[in-house]
Design a protein around this nucleic acid. Sequence first.
DNA 1: ATTGAGAGCGCG
DNA 2: AAAGCGCGCTCTCAAT
Length: 563
Amino acid sequence: MQPVVIPSPDGSVRVDGRRVALGELPSVVASAGAAARWTWDDTNRWYPGLLAAGVRVDRSHDLRLAHRILRGSALAAWPGPADAPPGPWDTLPAASLTSADAPAVLFAAPGPSSGPAEGPDPVAELALQDAVLAGSAAAGRLRLLLAAESAGALAAVEMYHAGLPWLADVHDAVLTETLGPRPRLGERPARLEELAHEIRAALGAPAGLNPDSPRDLLRAIERVGVGARTLRKWELEQLDHPVVEPLLEYKSLYRLLTANGWAWLEAWVRDGRFRSEYVVGGVVTGRWASSGGGALQLPKSVRRAVVADPGWTFVVADAAQLEPRVLAAMAGDEVMAAAGRGPDGRGADMYAGIVASGAVPTRELAKVGMLGAMYGGTTGSSGQVLPRLAKTFPRSLAFVDEAARAGERGEIVTTHLGRSSPLPGATWHEAQSGAYQDDAGDDDVAKARASARSWGRFTRNFVVQGTAAEWALCWIASIRRRLWALGPADLPDGLVPAPFAGRPHLVFFVHDEIVVHTPAGLADAVAAEVQAAAAEAGRLLFGDFPVQFPLSVAVARTYADAK
DNA sequence: ATTGAGAGCGCG
DNA sequence: AAAGCGCGCTCTCAAT
């Protein structure tokens, strides 16, 4: 059963040929049961209102997200010329969860003006997508990718709906401990003021020197001959000068103040929850991005404020060395997969396994070497161990090298499930052709090589990062289904909104890590399901290939304690 | 006053 | 140009 939600100009919707008033949609969806796959233009447009009405959707097909994948995929033959101008489905912007016409109020006050605007025809688009899939030799992988992407879209809206539990007073205490009490508007917190004095003293600078002004600060540093040419942390760290220590601390605290200080707290935390919008597929590789509040960059120092509700706890899980494991599986590299299984065959620290394989002497070298292989590093210790890794794991290294070469030629690369990279842009091609002009100089040739290499590093990383994102999508899709199946615990009414009241639910996701907020009594069951979901994701992507995806799992009442 | 580039740093 | 990927955000400073 695949009902399609079609917006009407009069503000109602049509579902399977039936006219449904907007306010009736939640009950229509609820009565359809879990077997239905709800198909619509944009999950962000419809799902928040359903959740607000307490209705969860089990499966969906997000036409906008699916279109973007299929249109770009080398595994799908989209009809029409490749350079056809973008159609409505190519340009459809995702509905914002935070805009003034936020869908949370969509069903509260339906009316001609508040109803959804008409869009391109979802029924025709679904038929087109079905035809494209039917004509693809890799239909199975693509269907899995579209299902996972759509499930991710559901999970993203659900996490926004539930919010990340956040205690503002704990956050305030963290800030006060490290920065001093909250200053008046426009004033510097006490600890930063102290450090500013120390910086000026170390530089023999006048009291007017403002450490927030990069230009003035750099000038003062040059005058004293500290030796730094920029103000970057890594460069300052190399230097031996009295200004380095207070300056580094100043920068660190200043960062906390400006990015996650009191202003952030007031802007993004309300009623005990932090809400940031996840942008599914917001990164070229298929990773999620976020919008508002910087959810994917939450510094470790403020994670103490992430505290479970009374009677609840967190299950925090992250996939260990996800990207190299994904690479081993994509490349069919049995040797590297074995290094990830460890001596007992039950999932090891993969970098320790690489050391045990004899390729490199230390774990640190295994790590920087693999990162270099996946990012395209050539220098330093990373570059030095690459030949050793290539000898021990030829299949994996050849796989990423081939992706890099394709990128250098200006070609597309594709993830395991079928998400393809974009083509390089006009400036890239101009740089390439510049090297072949009659009057091309060494500069032009060097520039062309540099941009080719740079795009090669992008495509090299794309196949790994993108496939890792696919594993994570399958993981999260499996988790949300399994958590729902666990059912509710018997708990007094709390802050968790319907439909998740009393039920374990996802509250946070960062690339290879998830946080589940769960009634404390269900924590062990949740941990087991999260483990089972990781194994399921591995099977979905790679079948019987003997790659393992071990997790580190922790149960803790605050996020900070989970590490 | 608003806009945009660049620098820098947080996360994975 | 921090060797080597992907982001979001906030700041300064200069241009509009």
